[in-house]
Design a protein around this nucleic acid. Structure first.
Lengths: 243, 243
DNA sequence: GCCATTTCTAACCCGCGGGTCATAAACTGC
DNA sequence: GCAGTTTATGACCCGCGGGTTAGAAATGGC
């Protein structure tokens, strides 16, 4: 053996490519720009990948596998929960019973997990969303979105049957609200350098979605970070001023 | 004068181009595909437009002008409202006072109007969202989204000061929820043939955002269409079954 | 040092698609 | 029908960027 290959080359190429994809989309990214960004020549690219699409596909593959795992884990957890505890009823929600709280905790946990997964691939997520039209990856996120809407719609429908949620809005609308919210939050992450306070975000969203934006009857405690991961970006604290 | 120009040519080109943009994005759309789709030759395209970007820009310009008008109209209406009525207070929201209801009606009206505008350009909106990365139009919708989040954040913050909304969630999060929801709903419109029931959608969203998804204490009436525009797509009626 | 071997470079090829233009076609006025 | 004028065509040009490859560079084994 002779002339060992540059061990960082592949990693550097992937990193540079991800940046280029963000800048110009899958179609718009130029291989020469990618290689120049890490001091390599165009030819070097083809020592590691067949095409930029293949590279993108690899990273997307990793990402989607992780997401898939998350989705499956949630499904299992949720079905296990209902097997063990039976459906939530109106009184569970009204009185915030232990079962209800346990269910919420489960949802929070999985929402947080999904957000964290997306955080690590927020650049790719961004590109899938806004820069892969007309490529093989076209529609990937949007199909995922559709499936999630469907899932939430079905879940909402079951809740309706037991009076555990309001019945005066179409379930699809609720699905769009939840998924749209998380979708934008995920997209917004692509603008951040440091990870946000996931707990604050998820807890706030859950509170809003569950209880609405109108002032509650009970006294309010601030949604707070259990575990402030990294620098907190949305640390705005409410002043609770009231004239 | 001799040989009058085909009077539908320009319109046909625009229509065909919009379809192509949806299929392949701004970059991916090919001029020959556009012209062939309306039985014209490539050269004919350049009798009407300098480039596909110029064509796209024209339509985007129309769209953004309409949106701008809507945004400005809302701003004026809202400031006029607060000039006339003063800020909403906790009791307005709690008791659903006339002022509060008037304010809500205003918001509903403008949300509905914006959705209707987007409806007419839902294809363009879709392309701006997911198929204009790396072009001059890159980021247009996302900047709009950012501005809207900011607007809602500011408004929420004022509400907080008067106790007219919950104070235990960051205002940005609320902004992301509202804008994300409408963003996804707008995007979903690109999949529909016939216009949805705007009133049902907007009223349901308002109800959810204001009061949350948990079952309310008051008896629920179905959100209904005042004016069912066209075929209603999300007409699912709730069964209100409760075991 | 020198060969063998693998890595890496940069010049090259080539197809695709945007943009042009000589030419043909269509129409008006006479 | 003919001249004049505007519209439309499609062959052509050409640059850009993906992919290839001959050969240079680097390194290990001897």
């Amino acid at each position: 053996m002779a002339r060992p290959a540059d061990p960082n080359a592949q990693g550097a190429l992937i990193a540079a490519a991800r940046k280029e994809f963000v800048r110009a989309g899958v179609k718009g990214a130029r291989i020469e720009d990618i290689t120049h960004a890490c001091g390599l020549s165009k030819g070097a690219f083809y020592l590691h990948f067949d095409s930029k699409e293949e590279l993108f596909g690899q990273v997307v593959g990793e990402f989607m596998a992780l997401v898939q795992k998350r989705v499956k884990a949630r499904e299992e957890d949720i079905t296990a929960f209902f097997m063990r505890n039976g459906p939530l009823r109106e009184q569970d929600v009204r009185k915030k019973s232990a079962r209800h709280e346990a269910f919420l905790a489960l949802e929070v946990k999985h929402d947080r997990g999904l957000l964290e997964t997306i955080w690590n691939y927020r650049d790719i997520f961004d590109v899938l969303m806004r820069g892969s039209q007309g490529t093989a990856f076209d529609g990937l996120v949007w199909e995922m979105v559709q499936r999630e809407i469907e899932r939430i719609k079905d879940s909402f429908e079951i809740f309706k049957q037991y009076g555990a949620c309001r019945t005066d809005v179409p379930s699809e609308i609720f699905g769009s609200l939840v998924v749209g919210t998380y979708l934008l939050v995920a997209k917004q992450m692509s603008l951040l350098q440091a990870p946000p306070n996931f707990d604050l975000w998820v807890e706030s969203l859950h509170r809003l979605i569950r209880e609405g934006s109108a002032p509650p009857l009970q006294p309010q405690r601030q949604a707070k970070a259990r575990r402030a991961g990294g620098k907190v970006t949305m640390q705005r604290r409410n002043k609770r001023s009231r004239p």
